[in-house]
Amino acid sequence: MKPHRSIRLFVTVGQRLFRDSLLFQLLQQDEVDLVGESETGIDTLNRLLNADVNVLIIEENLRDNDGLTIAENALSLCPSMSVLLISDSPVSASRMSIYLEAGIKSVVSKTHPIQELIKTLLYIRNGQTYVSSWHTHSPKETELEAYTELSGREREVAKMMANRIPVKEIAEQLGVSCKTVHSYKDRIFIKLGFERLPELILFMKRHQNAGMA
């Protein structure tokens, strides 16, 4: 199949800590390239034109102006860009239809898990609109359900991986080959719907400490 275009991303998020955390996650996606970032709306508009952006992620609440107003102006400058708006809380259906009509491709709320933002980013990159389910099953439940479906051996491997034990050592401890550990690893990731080790580590720590494992 044809290779996807890379995502030339511009991120406008006021708080540095939040922006950094987002970018650490997003830049782990191979296709994502960061071409600019900003804290304020006016600065975003000043710099957008020269950055050849194809996706803008912008917070709804900015220190200056309103994220949607800035996005509308950004779209009038670069109509072929896709905008993803980050809202503080889940938006109602009537707000959502206002956003879509204004040309926003998707809205992700700060209450959503990071995986939702990444999935949305991949869907909207070519100008597609993406509306996710109103009735998101709590991700915690789905993950927990998936966890209970892991076999005993898979759970064991998952725990060791979450403790950052190298594959070779896991293989030695369990008395199996590295290849076998790798196939356990693949199965764990598929079953839990994760793509990267940090996701697994976070999940295992959260639930181990909550007394699940």
Binding site: M96, S97, L100, Y123, Y130, V131, S132
Partner: peptide, 13 residues
Amino acid sequence: DLVRSHILTAALA
């Protein structure tokens, strides 16, 4: 995801 998104978008607009 895609099917849902397309139908919800139509419902919203």
